[in-house]
Nucleic acid binder design. Structure first.
Length: 409
RNA sequence: GGAGGGAUUCCCGAGUUGGCCAAAGGGGGCAGACUGUAAAUCUGCUGGCGACGCCUUCAGAGGUUCGAAUCCUCUUCCCUCCA
């Protein structure tokens, strides 16, 4: 069961990990685990606050997969109760509180997506509602007494909000305690998460110690930056790559990350050995290897991870065709125009763009035309007052990557 | 409970001696040029309307005025200090 030796395990576990605390404890836990042939209990808690997962969510899941492949016991905690509270980590405002129904609804799709990576047969799934639902008020008070206000306010996110005169609700301060309690309930040896989870994971250690358990070790990955290269990947910033996105989108979006982010993505999302990445970096600096080729490899590997070999090939082909050669994509969505949308077989260009969803207003449509961003069958339209004689099968293109095939009926 | 400060366009944030405000600046977004690509860099646009004019926006509801983001009243929410 526990086959890999300590050194191998150590290399796998520390790859892409920004912070492990305390390192020494992880080492001794691994040693004991090997000696006694007893897998470590590895915890990852997820709050199903939204339906769709993106790359940022999946980083700790990939780390968990590595533990799983090493033979350790993985426990996925579905935070049906913590999701109702909302993790304040790294937030500058209170999360909206979800109802239990909303949370449970998200759970299904969440697990579906997570189990494209983890082995469902080897993963224990528990809900923290299992223990929180029946907790009495006295138990809650006992838990609350483990934390002081001063310590909570030391946290960077709360401190910032406090100084910026932004509201902090009391229930948000309960969150770390709940997460810590989870660790105690499942007797975790290791807890995974982003570096923003450090505080919560440390609270878990305290609670475990308080209950006479050996405290867990935190293994934290850096926070994945989004495609804009500056901010944490997230839905609200629209700088994310969803794991359910089409191969074409996934490949393209990966190609759109700034060069400076390539290393991070390689480390966290692929298995390319670290030594090879170092070599690649050197070769790029020396000009022996083209950054674009490296990025293409990254995009291919990443797409492969979620869509398999066919998806990776599809994504790559599409990219080469549309962006490198500036040709039309293979599949173009068809948009139907009804006769009543035409006048004597003609449509005003601004109206057309709105009808097919390439502009949300006439003003935006005019702007696109004026700036030379609109083509019909390869011909650039420059007159915002242009009335187009509709042709079945014509290709309307806006910008570099939006296409529609017009169908008349 | 008392005293004071605040809410502006997708976001942040100017503007508060009333007209020159569809509202500075930045971010984001979009488009163009360039190329190595949906990198980087540079440029332009960025409330709505078949549009050199008209319409709706500055927390909400009223009011003063020829004219209000700017002044007055009430309401909602946030913050600070005191208790």
């Amino acid at each position: 069961m526990m086959e890999a030796n300590l050194q191998t395990q150590w290399e796998v576990i520390t790859r892409g990990a920004e912070d492990i605390f305390p390192e020494a404890e992880l080492r001794s836990k691994l040693q004991t685990s090997l000696k006694e042939n007893k897998p470590l209990r590895v915890k990852l808690g997820v709050d199903p606050t939204g339906a769709d997962l993106h790359f940022g969510h999946i980083i700790p899941v990939l780390k968990m997969k590595q533990f799983q492949d090493l033979g350790h016991h993985c426990i996925l905690i579905i935070g049906d109760y913590t999701a109702m509270v909302g993790d304040p980590s790294g937030r500058n405002k209170t999360r909206p509180q979800l109802t239990h129904e909303q949370v449970m609804e998200n759970c299904r799709t969440y697990q579906e997506q997570v189990f494209t990576i983890l082995d469902p047969g080897k993963t224990e799934v528990v809900y923290n509602g299992d223990w929180f639902a029946d907790m009495g008020f006295v138990d809650v008070l006992a838990l609350l007494s483990k934390m002081t206000v001063a310590r909570m306010l030391e946290r960077e996110d709360f401190a910032k909000r406090y100084q910026a005169q932004l509201p902090i609700s009391l229930h948000e301060m309960v969150y770390p305690l709940m997460q810590g309690y989870d660790s105690a309930m499942i007797r975790a040896d290791v807890e995974l998460g982003g570096t923003d989870q450090k505080f919560n994971i440390l609270v878990g250690r305290d609670i475990q110690k308080d209950r006479g358990q050996e405290p867990q070790v935190g293994v934290c990955n850096p926070i994945l930056l989004g495609t804009d290269g500056g901010e944490k990947m997230g839905k609200s910033l629209n700088n994310y790559i969803g794991i359910n996105e089409s191969p074409e989108e996934m490949f393209g979006k990966t190609m759109s990350i700034p060069d400076t982010l390539m290393r991070m993505y390689f480390e966290l999302l692929t298995d390319v050995p670290m030594a090879e990445l170092d070599t690649l970096d050197k070769e790029m600096i020396a000009g022996q290897v083209h950054p674009m080729d490296v990025k293409k490899r990254l995009a291919k590997l990443v797409t492969h991870r979620f869509h398999g070999a066919p998806g990776a090939a599809l994504g790559e082909a599409h990219f080469a065709r549309v962006f490198s050669q500036k040709e039309l994509p293979e599949d173009i969505d068809e948009v139907f125009l009804k006769p009543e949308q035409l006048e004597n077989g003609r449509v005003w260009i601004a109206k057309l763009l709105r009808e097919i969803g390439f502009a949300t207003s006439g003003g935006e449509a005019r702007r696109l035309v004026t700036q030379g961003g609109v083509r019909i069958d390869g011909e650039t339209i420059t007159d915002p007052g242009f009335d187009w004689q509709a042709v079945d099968g014509a290709i309307v293109q806006v910008g570099k990557r939006r296409f529609a095939k017009i169908r008349l009926r």
